[in-house]
Nucleic acid binder design. Structure first.
Lengths: 205, 205
DNA sequence: GTCTATACTCGGATAGAC
DNA sequence: GTCTATCCGAGTATAGAC
């Protein structure tokens, strides 16, 4: 790049602005004008940096995912014991979402709109490797360390408990009468609560 | 209405078409032309029946919700015993979502975009009444029938396990290698599996 | 009640000056 | 790299015939 350095480069400001706007309105609802305004530039410059809206979106999306997945994948594939792994996953996952509360809904939405594109963008065509984790669960069942449960069900349970409060946040806060501070507090609790909930349910001791 | 009856009225066909399109593209992404095409009419007629896109959307949204909530609310307020209630809820909820798999994402999306409007449209300004259920949970904790757990956490757990597979469906099917038939089968299983999972976790026997 | 034709608006994209 | 000006398609809305 041949440009003078500022506190934040134009490109960076565009990406930040775009992220905000895409989060708020989704791909179709986002306005290039609003992104330009937020970034303090004009529309033409947007198209100079990113050929079109889709390219811009894709960049934001992938960038966001990249911050998210590697750690999760490494936990999945690690050699931690099953319940340690579940706890590590919940802790890491909830922490990351607390930093970027918009991600789950964003991902779910894109995923459901474009399942194929989604896979390509998210993992470069490769599925995340859950073989090890699945094997671990099946082994634990076989050794009668945990009650019989299909690995898919167990994983859906854990994922659901982690993600739901964030995507259902307005509903949760409304019907539970919970303010923002309390909500964050509860999510912190859930990093331990969920693994414990799971352990109590399936562990045979 | 003074018009000749067909198998399905024009209004009904519009609403069905609109639902499909809104589900697929969301409010902003939906095209009136596509809705008109699906309904077998032209754009002008859409505006004759529903003044504009927002009105049409609102109609679809409320109509969809109305089919969903009363039963859930009546279960919440019923005098079933706690675990019976949880099982009734999961059964009813999963059944209803299986009939309209699009609802959860649709609701979550609208909810997060317009928390205030959402409440107004969904319950006419009234929150759903969870007092009875919350009281039941607290009482069960107090009587040492279940382990100590904040009612909100328990409810988030249950909701999350019910909803997640549907909103995360593409992901679930992809990484688990599950086809549509198998997916439906698994959701049927979850109507019993989730209540049992919960019971094993919190019940003190 | 249904349709055709068309006006109008908005927003994404481009050309070209600086 | 950045801007102004403008184009053009998509989409909403309306007028008016039948």
């Amino acid at each position: 790049m041949v440009k003078t350095k500022k506190d934040t480069s134009t490109e960076e400001r565009i990406l930040n602005a775009a992220r905000e706007v895409f989060i708020e309105h989704g791909l179709a609802g986002a306005r290039m004008q609003e992104i330009a305004d937020k970034a303090g530039i004009n529309k033409a410059l947007l198209h100079y940096y990113f050929r079109n809206k889709e390219k811009l979106f894709e960049t934001v999306f992938i960038e966001t995912m990249q911050a998210f997945l590697p750690k999760i994948n490494s936990i999945f594939s690690s050699d931690l014991e099953l319940f340690e792994k579940i706890e590590a996953f919940c802790g890491e996952y909830i922490d990351k979402i607390l930093e970027n509360p918009f991600i789950p809904l964003f991902v779910l939405h894109e995923m459901n709109k474009q399942p194929d594109e989604f896979v390509k963008n998210m993992w470069g065509g490769k599925k995340p490797n859950i073989k090890i984790l699945v094997g671990q669960i099946e082994e634990a069942v076989h050794k009668k360390q945990i009650r019989p449960i299909h690995p898919a069900h167990l994983m859906m349970n854990i994922m659901g408990m982690c993600i739901f409060p964030f995507v259902g946040r307005p509903l949760v806060q409304l019907i539970m009468n919970v303010n923002d501070r309390q909500f964050t507090q509860m999510m912190q609790e859930r990093k331990k609560l969920i693994p414990e909930f799971v352990r109590l349910s399936i562990q045979i001791k």
